[in-house]
Simulated assay, not measured.
Amino acid sequence: MITLLADGGETGIEGPVVPHGATILGWERKPHGWCRGEACVPSYRAAAAETAEGVDLAAFAELLGRQVVADPEEGVIAVGEPAGLTESGEAPRFEELERLRGTKVALVFWASWCGCRYDLPAWEELHRELAGYGFSVLSVSLDRDPQDAREWLDGVTHPTVIDADGRIAELYNVINVPTVVWVDEEGRIARPQDTMTATDTFRSMNGLSSERAVAALRRWVIDGEAGTAARELRAPTADERRARLHARVAAWLLRAGRTDAAERHLTAAAALAPHDLAIRRGLMPLRGVDPFGEEYFALREELEAAGIAIYRPLPDWQEDPS
């Protein structure tokens, strides 16, 4: 039996070749091809994944534009989200965001392993202050252990979600926290993934002005002015997408106590996306490593020496050099 990690869940399958007649990743075989709703992969293309024994899961996923990381020895396969999941400018959909359609939303990505956890009360205040203008905060925790996030959500009234499998971070190409995305009433990107703070608690480290950022947010909510930022998310590279799948497998293995196997996948992820702190720092708690300790600061030094920015805000949110 193999565990399939896909679409935000875990499924047991008999092997990497799926028997004929089975539904695969939500797709069903029809006479003219594989279909999911109105979308279909025609038979002549699907033939590349079909064998006499069944359908090769990895080959089928690749037909859908989805990357695969498999560890046959450990009995686990992870399938990523499709490349180009949405139309240009459309915010990738997930359940909690869909409930807020018709409302302006600030998607606030945070984690208990980041100092940005101390910004949550300020985000809660903005949520309450601007609710009358048709606005909501939706905070997304990147904690791999949901319990780590829950203690920081006590008393919060805005919608929240814990992205323990990293799927939402994958959809929005989030490589560190705090990251914020603005989504308009029609479910389109008003401002892409930027480093944004709601307080100046760590301004000496990140050089960001929360006053500028929050003022810009208020202008967008009240006056509809989103500024000159791009209206599309920065797309991940193929290596970044594959790194996230290695991280998903590593998290699954760590929860199962298979530390050595998990470290192999963490090493692979770090080689593919050395800048992705959501992976490299985010998995430290599952490894029993202090995310505020020596290993984290060594990682910061490594990235700084390589000229890799830890915080990636647009210029209008950075500290005024004057």
Rank of each mutant, 00 (worst) to 15 (best):
L4Q: 06
L5K: 10
E10Y: 09
I13D: 09
V17P: 00
V18Y: 01
P19R: 07
T23P: 05
I24K: 07
G26I: 11
W27G: 02
R29P: 07
R29I: 00
W34K: 06
C35R: 03
C35W: 00
E38Y: 02
E38F: 06
Y44W: 15
Y44M: 10
R45G: 00
R45D: 12
A48Q: 15
A49F: 09
A52Q: 14
F60Y: 10
L64H: 02
R66D: 02
V68A: 09
V69H: 02
D71E: 12
E74Y: 01
V79W: 01
A83E: 15
L85F: 03
T86Q: 11
T86G: 02
A91N: 05
E95S: 06
E96P: 05
E98A: 15
K104T: 07
K104F: 00
V105K: 03
C114Y: 06
G115W: 09
E125V: 14
L126F: 07
Y133C: 06
G134H: 03
G134P: 05
F135P: 10
S141P: 09
D145Y: 01
Q147V: 15
L153R: 01
H158G: 08
P159M: 11
V161N: 11
L171F: 07
V174C: 08
I175E: 06
P178A: 03
P178K: 00
T179N: 04
V180K: 01
R191K: 12
T199K: 00
D200E: 14
M205Q: 14
L208S: 11
V214T: 11
R219P: 08
G224D: 13
A226Q: 08
G227W: 14
G227R: 12
G227S: 13
T228D: 15
R231L: 09
P236W: 04
A238C: 02
E240F: 08
R241D: 09
R244D: 06
A250I: 07
A250P: 05
R258D: 13
A261W: 11
A261F: 10
A262I: 06
E263P: 08
L266Q: 10
T267N: 09
A268T: 05
A268D: 13
A271K: 10
P274L: 06
H275S: 11
A278H: 02
R280Q: 08
R280H: 07
L286C: 15
V289I: 15
V289Y: 07
D290G: 03
F292M: 11
F292Y: 13
Y296N: 13
L303N: 12
Y311C: 01
Y311L: 03
P313S: 08
P321D: 07
S322A: 15
